[in-house]
Design a protein around this nucleic acid. Structure first.
Length: 560
RNA sequence: GCGCCUGUAGCUCAGUGGAGAGAGCAACUGCCUUCUAAGCAGUGGGCCGGGCGUUCGAGUCGCCCCAGGCGCACCA
């Protein structure tokens, strides 16, 4: 498609030059020709508004300009059937059937790599996502982040970037201490010792079970001093939870390349080093016993405390060291996926990156809106404070990883997501996952039927000129646009475009199938050549659905 | 009060500055002796939150309102 557009653009530029010269119009600068897909078949396959841009320069109406171009235009009839001037000056291009048919050969030739590109040129990109504190099990919101991060990573890989998936473990600081306090308190409770549960502690039921498991590993907890018991509980509990988090993610189909621990940044001296760099730059100041960073000098709305009066560093301090660490590792781009409630945090991280003398543009943060979980239309309450939330594990067990991942990726990240568990489980029209997967299964089924009928594949040598039904051309157009959809989706970090495109492709395919299945135009018919051409198209549909689902991390079943 | 995000069909949401604004669900009407009816075809349903601007052209860009969400810590 890109190639076709490029050739047409060149032909148009050439036509403009000759048309203006022939008519004695002033010479014009031809802008880059942009193409769009017209809203209606009668407007052709591609359309450009080039004449609107030129009209002013030559002081003629867009319609006159368009007509002049159209009359002068010289294009290969193998590519273009006709060009029309329409409306106030659109140039509508009707692409030749042969060109669309050629797309099928491209798909079948490229196979799993159809849609891949090399624009990334191997540049290294890091995608950091999930990064949930190891203070509890992953919930549905984390699942959305996991699906998004993994899909963004897949997309970037598909267009030629070297991608690393990273999980940042917040295993230092006050949340860890709270976890330790909560676990210890539950243990003491279990031992019948009266305790006051920490005010902001973790109230979830899982903490009781955690306390049991921790006490099995750490002896003598009940009689220990708080200063020994709490860190021990925190360390053991977070290790157990981290193991569960990793297992849950694996079950969800998400595997990280690296896990970086916050504590390790302290142990290695990187936090100290980052502070020293900022101090040397004169970007730190004292406020009482606390130490702050002049973030407002770098675009943040206010200055930020790095070291509390108590001497404890804030979360931000290690995060500065963490981002310095990422940049040091040589990535060309850093992508962070955060919950929308961390949006206000972006300017201060960018300020820190700038203060450390790096370009803050290296960092791109994708903010993810909340997931509202429903069950048969009724909201399921979620609150980390009270420990009531729907765990990712439950959802994966109940609806499966495919449905969960696909549905998480049907919305833009900025849009809040309603996730209805009952609807996700339903294997019906409510459920776009099954619709798309069914398209794949149906194509596989047709290939099996064809083999039984003595028409086995491959079909790469079929005479594709037979494919001229409007539905067939429609399907081929979807296949043709797939690569640029992947490219846009990758560069914009928007996997939802993939789910949308796959639904459209599946709809075109299901519609085609049903319309002709009982007619003379059915795919597998008495006409051998025609059948093989159609089977080639079916094979291409199967391939593109499989490729698209792979980007989303969703399986493409051969039978359903 | 300030900042970011979001307002599109009854519901959930798509929609690269371009031509009667789309899909799924829900409602209604049809279609199974034949490649999977987990499907398909059709009908109804819209001041694209409001206003002003930029532009030949605005759901899309800018400004101002209105409504909702999230932030505005020596929490993360």
């Amino acid at each position: 498609m890109e190639q076709l557009k490029k050739m047409l653009g060149a032909a148009l530029a050439d036509a403009v030059a000759r048309a203006t010269a022939a008519r004695g119009w002033p010479p014009v600068a031809v802008p880059e020709v942009t193409w769009e897909y017209p809203p209606e078949p009668s407007f052709g396959d591609l359309s450009t508004t080039l004449s609107f841009a030129l009209a002013k320069q030559v002081r003629r109406s867009p319609r006159d300009v368009a007509t002049a171009i159209q009359q002068t235009l010289d294009v290969d009839p193998a590519l273009v059937a006709k060009v029309e001037v329409a409306g106030p000056g659109y140039l509508n291009v009707f692409v030749a059937n042969g060109w669309w048919q050629g797309v099928l050969r491209e798909v079948l030739g490229a196979g799993p790599s159809y849609g891949r590109a090399s624009i990334g040129q191997g540049q290294r990109v890091q995608v950091e996502f999930v990064s949930a504190n190891p203070t509890g099990p992953l919930h549905v919101g984390h699942g959305r982040g996991a699906a998004l991060g993994d899909a963004v990573a897949n997309l970037l890989e598909a267009v030629g970037y070297g991608v690393e998936r990273e999980y940042y473990i917040n295993d230092a600081g006050s949340q860890m201490r709270l976890l330790g306090e909560s676990v210890w308190a539950r243990h003491l409770e279990a031992k019948g010792k009266p305790v006051q549960f920490p005010e902001n502690g973790y109230h979830g039921e899982y903490v009781r079970e955690l306390a049991e498991r921790v006490s099995a590993v750490v002896p003598g907890l009940a009689d220990a001093e708080a200063e020994q018991a709490i860190p021990a509980c925190a360390a053991q509990a977070s290790q157990i939870l981290l193991g569960e988090i990793e297992a849950d993610l694996r079950a969800f189909g998400v595997v990280f390349d690296s896990w970086v621990s916050e504590r390790s940044l302290y142990d290695s001296g990187e936090v100290e080093a980052a502070l020293a760099t900022l101090r040397a730059g004169g970007y730190l100041y004292e406020e009482g016993k606390a130490i702050g960073f002049r973030a407002s000098d770098f675009g943040d709305e206010k200055d930020r405390i790095l070291i509390r009066s108590s001497g404890e560093p804030t979360y931000f301090t290690s995060d500065i060291a963490y981002h310095a660490n990422k940049i040091r590792r040589g990535f060309h781009r850093l992508i962070n996926i955060w919950g929308a409630d961390h949006g206000g945090y972006i300017p201060r991280v960018k300020a820190a990156i700038r203060a450390l003398d790096h370009d803050p543009e290296i960092l791109r943060v994708i903010l993810l809106q909340m997931v509202k979980v429903l069950r048969s239309g009724a909201p399921v309450p979620m609150s980390k404070r009270t420990g009531e939330f729907v765990e990712l594990r439950e959802v994966v067990n109940e609806v499966g990883k495919d449905a969960a991942r696909f549905l998480f990726l049907t919305r833009r990240s900025e849009a809040q997501l309603d996730f209805d568990i009952e609807a996700a489980k339903r294997q019906s029209m409510d459920n776009p996952v099954f619709y798309v997967q069914y398209g794949h299964a149906r194509a596989c089924s047709m290939a099996r039927k064809a083999a039984e009928a003595g028409l086995p594949g491959p079909y790469a040598d079929a005479d594709l000129a037979h494919l001229t039904l409007p539905e067939e051309l429609g399907i081929m157009k979807h296949l043709a646009i797939y690569p640029e959809m992947v490219l846009h989706s990758a560069l914009a970090h928007e996997p939802h475009r993939v789910t949308t495109h796959l639904q459209e492709l599946a709809a075109a395919f299901h519609g085609y199938f049903t319309k002709y299945k009982d007619s003379e135009e059915r795919v597998i018919s008495g006409d051998r050549d025609l059948s093989r051409a159609r089977l080639a198209m079916v094979a291409a549909v199967r391939q593109v659905i499989a490729n698209g689902l792979a980007l989303l991390g969703v399986s493409a079943p051969e039978r359903m």
